[in-house]
């Protein structure tokens, strides 16, 4: 399983991860090598085996919907890289 330049670029796009040309080259080799090591899983017969998402038998964890103290606007915005009028500020989405 060899990952091509285009595939690496495509995955990076899906992850919204900027990569330099050198990184694309490097990941193409390294990820291919890692994926090759994953081929071993094909040996395992998983017919009729259910996939495990968790190891503990928990499902549908509910709680009462009740009013409680929350964080202040100031606290929540305290780490914001950009803010305006007590809101997170982002660049325009629509041109």
């Amino acid at each position: 399983m060899k990952l091509s330049y285009e595939q690496v670029r495509h995955i990076a796009w899906l992850a919204r991860l900027g990569l330099s040309e050198e990184e694309v080259e490097k990941f193409s080799l390294q990820l291919s090598n890692i994926l090759e090591n994953f081929e071993i899983l094909k040996e395992v017969d998983t017919t009729n085996v259910p996939p495990a998402t968790h190891t503990i038998p928990l499902k549908n964890v509910f709680r009462k919907d009740k009013v409680a103290e929350s964080y202040s606007q100031t606290e929540i915005l305290s780490n914001a890289p950009r803010q305006a009028e007590k809101c997170f500020k982002v660049q325009a989405i629509l041109e």
Binding site: V8, I11, L14, A15, L17, L19, E23, L31
Partner: peptide, 22 residues
């Protein structure tokens, strides 16, 4: 977003994000 993640994450984190996304 792309540049923030490009300069904010190191090589192993990027590698795993790539692997997981794939």
């Amino acid at each position: 977003t792309e540049k923030t993640r490009q300069f904010g994450f190191g090589p192993e984190v990027k590698r795993r994000i790539m692997l997981g996304t794939y």
